[in-house]
């Protein structure tokens, strides 16, 4: 007997859509590159001189070389690792905080809600870029500071969304019914309500991931990000002075590398919203 959960239905719809399928493949490809680079299988020797300084793109060096004669292509791979790790770390910080605080605030209401609402209102009152700059400046330059800074700014939105959605579901009759059969708060919140708001986490993470990647590039460009290793942001910083000399390949490489992954996450986020959000069903 054929049966379809809402999840299965959604993913079927997603798989039928070629654009989102391609987006998913791009994301998986970047993830694979990042893992291979992180484990040292590829791009471990990124700092090696492979040719002359500032060589234009050729079959030997797809994106040419930088002023130290290092391969821009291999540096891009290394940058992929940094970018993906920032996206992942941000999600790992933001999801637990956002989901737990949002769910608790929405479900219990009262002073718990007041407290958590105050907390995220406060955090969202400091413009993101200022908070990012302040945190990275205080914690010292480097990847760790970038993780913390992006984590600290990105839970807010998720928390607010989850809170609102949990509040809505709390009043639904299926949750009341769970109470009527003897289920407690834990069961109502975690077994009944949370699976019904998970789509928000997925959609939000997909969109938040690309925001994190974009932010990392800017922070690295400002010199606040990763030190002593290539990232797309530092590569663009290098290119700033080279462009006038006609050396465009470092800028082009970093921009393209970032373009595809951000585009893929954007497309995927939109497609996920279309297929997972029950509100949009039947339109």
């Amino acid at each position: 007997m054929k049966t379809n959960s809402l999840w299965k239905d959604s993913f079927k719809q997603l798989a039928r859509d070629k654009i989102s399928l391609i987006s998913l493949l791009i994301v998986l490809f970047y993830a694979l590159v990042a893992i291979l680079s992180a484990t040292g299988i590829i791009a471990a020797d990124w700092s090696k001189e492979v040719g002359g300084s500032n060589l234009p793109p050729s079959f030997e060096h797809f994106f040419g070389t930088d002023f130290l004669g290092r391969s821009v292509f291999i540096k891009l791979i290394r940058g992929t690792q940094i970018a993906m790790s920032v996206g992942l770390a941000t999600s790992l910080i933001a999801i637990p905080i956002g989901v737990v605080l949002g769910a608790v605030a929405g479900y219990f209401g009262g002073w718990v809600d007041d407290l958590i609402t105050w907390l995220y209102t406060t955090f969202s009152s400091i413009p993101n870029i200022m908070l990012l700059i302040a945190i990275t400046m205080i914690l010292g330059k480097g990847l760790f500071a970038v993780y913390v800074a992006l984590g600290a700014t990105s839970w807010v939105n998720l928390c607010r969304l989850i809170r609102g959605e949990v509040m809505k579901h709390k009043e639904r009759e299926y949750v009341q019914a769970a109470g009527a059969i003897g289920g407690g708060h834990f069961r109502k919140l975690f077994i009944h309500i949370l699976p019904n708001v998970t789509h928000i986490v997925i959609i939000n993470t997909s969109l938040q991931f690309q925001v994190a990647i974009k932010s990392e590039v800017i922070l690295s460009y400002l010199g606040l990000g990763v030190q002593g290793e290539p990232s797309w942001g530092t590569m663009i910083d290098d290119a700033k002075l080279e462009l006038a000399k006609g050396v465009w390949w470092q800028l082009a490489g970093a921009t393209l590398a970032m373009f595809f992954i951000v585009l893929a996450f954007n497309m995927l986020g939109d497609a996920l919203r279309d297929s997972l959000d029950p509100k949009l069903k039947g339109k």
């Binding site: 959960s5 299926y174 009527a180 003897g182 069961r187 009944h192 019904n196 029950p278």
Partner: peptide
């Protein structure tokens, strides 16, 4: 004591199968 609600659309958890919905009370008790 049990209750049957008005709206058959919102009173069933959309992410659970009928088997899960029906055995849940037994699990709880």
């Amino acid at each position: 004591m049990q209750i049957i609600f008005q709206d058959p659309y919102s009173s069933l958890n959309p992410r659970m199968t009928i088997t899960e919905i029906l055995t849940e009370p037994l699990n709880i008790h």
